[in-house]
Computed example of a mutant assay.
Amino acid sequence: MDNVFLEALVRALAVGTPLLLACLGAVVNERAGIVNLGVEGMMAVGALAAFAVASASPDANLWLAVGAAMLAGAALSALHAFATVTLRANQFVSGLALALIGTGAAGLLGKRFEGMPLFNKVPDWTLGGLTISPFTVAALLLAGALAFFLNSTRPGLTLRSVGENPAAADVLGVNVGAVRVLAVLAGGALSGLAGAFLALSYRASWADNMTAGLGWIAVALVIFVGWRPLRAVWGSLFFGVLYYLQFRLQGNSPVPPEVFSAMPFVLVLVVLAIAGRRGQQGDAPAALGLPYLRGER
């Protein structure tokens, strides 16, 4: 029984890691008032950038590959920042376009890397009898750091004020546009880091559609956890358990495998419906999704 529990925990932590990293990035975006539905695309380009750098030679620096993934995610998110902050375009349409651009570009440019070996992967750590990825440890630490930043620091208060009442923040001398752009770039970097985990640790390979919808689940997870970084830890672990059960039960049940593949996405709809009935959407930043123009009411 203990072995089964530990296996489930390790698997849940592994699958939950990219969800947590991407969710934290989306929390940063949305706390500043910007909705970014392009998480899936940013994860995809991050995974591709990481694998491209890591597979260049046996002596490739893996942490340089991680940096490349974060840079790629931030660069793609800059398109969203330009469209939504500078041009004040519809944030939902821009985010959807970003998801399509990112996954499409990664699939096209990644054709040459399919089947190529990854000379080495980011080594796992052994902590308390558990084999755990450094990415997982980093994600947990980032969740705590982000919670502290948002709730206990002046820059965090500034970020939240821009998402709640950008006009009031502007009156107090805050550059609303700059704060929102930086938040979008930071969110993109974290999504790229989630992609790096997939390419360098979890799968240690490159394949088209390797994000497999995790970015969309991360977007929904933000609402489920009420825009709270520490709650995101438990939310990502919950969905990690669902993914573990999906693989565990396939082949051991008369139920068609497609049912298990759809299970995490069905649960996303269920938990969002529950959150909506309980009024959890009331925790959303007041100016979420609304463009800001100085002097406009």
Results as ranks from 00 to 15, higher is better:
3 N>H: 15
5 F>Y: 07
9 L>G: 01
11 R>C: 03
15 V>G: 00
17 T>Q: 01
18 P>S: 01
18 P>F: 00
22 A>V: 02
28 V>M: 04
29 N>A: 11
31 R>H: 03
32 A>T: 06
36 N>H: 12
40 E>F: 01
41 G>L: 09
44 A>D: 08
45 V>S: 02
46 G>V: 08
49 A>S: 07
52 A>V: 08
55 S>E: 08
55 S>D: 04
55 S>M: 09
63 W>K: 11
64 L>Q: 10
64 L>D: 04
65 A>W: 14
66 V>P: 05
68 A>P: 03
69 A>D: 12
69 A>R: 09
70 M>Y: 03
74 A>G: 05
75 A>Q: 05
81 A>K: 00
82 F>G: 04
87 L>T: 03
88 R>L: 09
94 S>T: 15
97 A>W: 01
98 L>W: 05
100 L>W: 03
102 G>H: 06
103 T>F: 12
106 A>E: 14
106 A>S: 14
111 K>S: 12
114 E>S: 14
118 L>M: 12
121 K>G: 09
124 D>A: 13
131 T>I: 11
132 I>M: 01
134 P>T: 05
134 P>Q: 11
134 P>Y: 15
136 T>M: 10
139 A>N: 13
151 N>P: 08
151 N>F: 15
155 P>C: 08
156 G>I: 10
158 T>C: 07
159 L>S: 01
159 L>K: 00
165 N>L: 04
168 A>K: 01
170 D>Y: 15
172 L>I: 09
174 V>N: 10
177 G>C: 09
178 A>C: 11
185 L>R: 08
186 A>R: 11
188 G>V: 09
189 A>T: 11
189 A>R: 08
192 G>N: 13
196 A>K: 13
199 A>T: 02
202 Y>Q: 15
203 R>Y: 12
207 A>P: 08
214 L>H: 03
219 V>D: 04
220 A>V: 02
222 V>C: 01
225 V>H: 01
227 W>V: 00
230 L>G: 07
231 R>V: 00
233 V>R: 04
235 G>F: 10
241 V>E: 02
242 L>W: 08
245 L>T: 05
248 R>C: 00
248 R>K: 09
251 G>H: 06
253 S>M: 15
254 P>L: 09
254 P>I: 13
256 P>L: 07
258 E>Y: 07
258 E>A: 11
260 F>D: 13
267 L>T: 02
267 L>H: 05
269 L>S: 11
269 L>W: 06
271 V>A: 10
276 G>P: 05
280 Q>E: 12
285 P>Y: 08
289 G>E: 06
289 G>L: 09
291 P>M: 14
296 E>W: 11
297 R>Y: 13
